[in-house]
Amino acid sequence: MKPATLSPARKDIRLSFEFFPPKSAEAEGQLWETAAELSAYDPGFMSVTYGAGGSTKVPTLSTVRQLLKMGLPAASHLTCVGATKEEVHAVVADFQAVGVRHFVTLRGDPPGGVGTAYHPHPGGYANAAELAAGLRGLADFEISVSAYPEKHPQSPDVAADIDMLKRKVDGGATRALTQFFFENDDFERYLERVRKAGITIPVVPGILPVHNLSQVQKFAGMCGASVPGWLADRLAPVDDRPQERAPVAIDLAARQIEDLIARGIGEFHFYTMNRATLVSAVCDRVGFAKIDRRPAAGAAA
């Protein structure tokens, strides 16, 4: 199979990148390097994950603050699990104080972990739709929400997922970011159903270049995504050989994006795993335009 060809620079394609808070000084340095490298693609925003129940509030806030200091457009994830409305509002105020104007609004995983029963906190927001409406009532934030082309694992069917997405939009959501997927036909069928439901906000494909097949298969099992056999067949023989795996992973992700662009998609959200190598290689292969956007000095301060 030939590699995906390099396309002319595409200045009309919008990109965003997702990070998670670093857990060590070494990981922190890697994150700032990653953010600096990916800033060359002029992202619309760089989002930072937030643990359910506020478990990563401090490191998430610190990470977002530093991205903003670097002159980068930062957004914070926000969950409502294990918190009252007043506690959520206090968190929002803390992020707003450092300059955050964009939240990726999620319900969050149940306190018992993925797969356990979810019960809303007494006095809290019951779900992401209520949380989006609560945010909209606080200020004119930009609000992104999640979407699931293969349905959320706790939803009875895709129709229920789409109904929830519509409730999120009614609550004030301005963009939906999808869970990662590898079958573009699944995404296209989902998008057709979303549009038929009268939902007009951008639905942005979530792209996950595969750093490790076994890890992605584990992630997929937890979040309701699937890893098709053809992808596993390509990656399994080289999964324990990173230098051989990388070109295959780059080609697979580039082909996926090229096909989505051919289907009319003009915006992509990358799950970076806090590493730039594969993501930047995919962006270059597809031909996304770069700019000279050097972050301010003292990025790792």
Rank of each mutant, 00 (worst) to 15 (best):
F19R: 04
F19H: 03
F20P: 06
F20V: 09
F20L: 07
P21V: 01
K23W: 02
A25C: 00
A27W: 01
G29D: 12
Q30V: 15
W32S: 10
E33Y: 02
E33V: 07
E33A: 15
T34E: 11
A35R: 09
D42W: 13
P43Q: 14
G44K: 15
M46D: 13
M46I: 15
Y50M: 03
S55Y: 03
R65G: 11
L67D: 11
L67W: 09
A74H: 05
H77Y: 08
L78A: 06
T79K: 07
V81S: 03
A83H: 01
A83I: 00
A83D: 06
E86D: 13
E87G: 06
A90R: 14
V91I: 12
V92C: 03
A93R: 13
F95A: 08
F95S: 02
A97H: 04
V100L: 05
T105G: 02
T105F: 02
G108R: 10
H119Y: 05
P120N: 10
A126I: 01
A128D: 04
L138Q: 15
A139I: 07
F141P: 10
E142C: 01
V145F: 01
P149S: 09
P156C: 00
P156L: 13
A159C: 08
D161E: 15
L165K: 11
V169S: 06
V169D: 03
G171K: 10
T174R: 10
T174M: 06
L177W: 00
D185L: 02
F187Y: 15
R189N: 07
L191Q: 01
R193W: 00
G198N: 06
I199E: 02
G206I: 10
P209W: 07
N212V: 02
S214C: 00
K218E: 12
F219V: 12
A220Q: 11
M222S: 08
M222G: 00
P228C: 07
V238K: 01
D239A: 10
R241Y: 05
R241P: 00
P242Q: 06
E244A: 09
P247T: 07
V248Y: 03
A249I: 04
A249K: 03
A254K: 03
I257D: 03
I257L: 05
L260K: 06
F268K: 12
H269L: 11
H269T: 12
M273Y: 13
M273I: 15
N274W: 14
N274C: 11
A276C: 10
T277L: 14
V282N: 11
D284I: 03
R285K: 15
I291P: 00
R294P: 05
R294I: 15
P295R: 09
A296I: 04
A297P: 06
